[in-house]
């Protein structure tokens, strides 16, 4: 059962989940906010692809780039309008705000577009497969792996080599002290939301790419995966999030193979139970990171 096909598919799924978790942890690292609206950044990117895709003349890469940017803009917009004013208030206020933002975005789409699923045009290679020996591998999965490698290298560069990246890491460690260095709080927070949105946008391309359609509730499933993967990997570092994503992908594929067909509908529940049990023994997740619990203020 563990053949090349399984390995590539698992690595691909893990890559997608790693990007997904990373986007969530970026914001968490600095604001200590579990952003319930994160799934909606994926949704809006999906709708951007749907809307732009109506015009057949626009090449697919432009559509995708605009969709990714749109997710980043929406993410930044939610920060500006909703999260910034409640940032210094209680943690519950911020959590509830993110939940409200999520409901708001869903219902905006519900009213302005449709409650029903809409088609998203995709380039042909998304549905093609490649044969390697006995293994049949979807090209999409290889693209996911490639994209993830490029993004992880790029993000590592930004975080390690640019001043903004250093400031973001510092802010995740000690927020107030970072401000005392002259780093504007809003700059750092906005930057994390934009990166979070960009990652959500990239994930959206591949997520929507599975079914070639988008609906207002499409963000719920990836949000959950990001939640579970991050708590499993460790909320306190970006490395933890990436590890969590890959572990989740592996666990998911193993469960899919091992569970009998009658139990497959319980798969999500099984995943969560495993994770909850795991957390009881190791609440900090697989990877103990350096971030503190200090809140912004």
């Amino acid at each position: 059962m563990i053949d090349l096909e399984f390995i590539i598919n698992t690595v691909s799924l893990g890559s997608l989940y790693a990007l997904l978790s990373l986007g969530l942890v970026f914001v968490y690292g600095i604001l200590k906010l579990v952003n319930f609206a994160y799934g909606e950044y994926i949704m809006v990117a999906g709708y951007a692809m749907h809307v732009i895709g109506q015009n057949r003349g626009i090449p697919w890469y432009v559509t995708m780039a605009v969709a990714v940017l749109f997710a980043a803009v929406v993410s930044y917009g939610t920060e500006l309008v909703a999260f910034r004013p409640v940032r210094t208030k209680s943690l519950t206020a911020m959590l509830v705000t993110s939940f409200a933002v999520s409901v708001f975005l869903q219902n905006v789409v519900l009213i302005t577009i449709s409650p029903r699923a809409r088609a998203v045009p995709l380039p042909a290679f998304f549905s093609q497969t490649l044969t390697l020996g006995t293994a049949t591998i979807p090209v999409r999965n290889l693209v996911i792996i490639g994209t993830t490698i490029v993004l992880l290298i790029g993000l590592t560069f930004v975080m390690k080599r640019t001043v903004l990246g250093i400031a973001m890491r510092a802010a995740a460690d000690k927020f107030t002290t970072t401000r005392l260095m002259g780093v504007p709080a809003n700059l750092v927070i906005s930057a994390t939301f934009i990166i979070s949105g960009l990652l959500a946008g990239v994930v959206a391309i591949f997520w929507v790419g599975r079914s070639a359609s988008v609906d207002p509730l499409i963000g719920a499933a990836p949000l959950l995966i990001a939640f579970i993967a991050t708590v499993m990997g460790g909320m306190h570092s970006q490395i933890g999030a990436v590890i969590g994503g890959f572990v989740y992908g592996l666990l998911f594929n193993i469960l899919s193979i091992m569970l009998p067909a009658t139990m497959i509908s319980y798969r999500d529940a099984f995943m969560f139970v495993i994770v909850i049990l795991f957390l009881l023994f190791r609440p900090e997740g697989i990877w103990r990171g350096g971030y503190t619990e200090e809140r912004v203020g």
């Binding site: 890491r169 510092a170 970072t178």
Partner: peptide, 12 residues
Amino acid sequence: FGSLTVEENLRL
């Protein structure tokens, strides 16, 4: 900043 290098601390 404990997780940053001395260099990065000074740069900030």
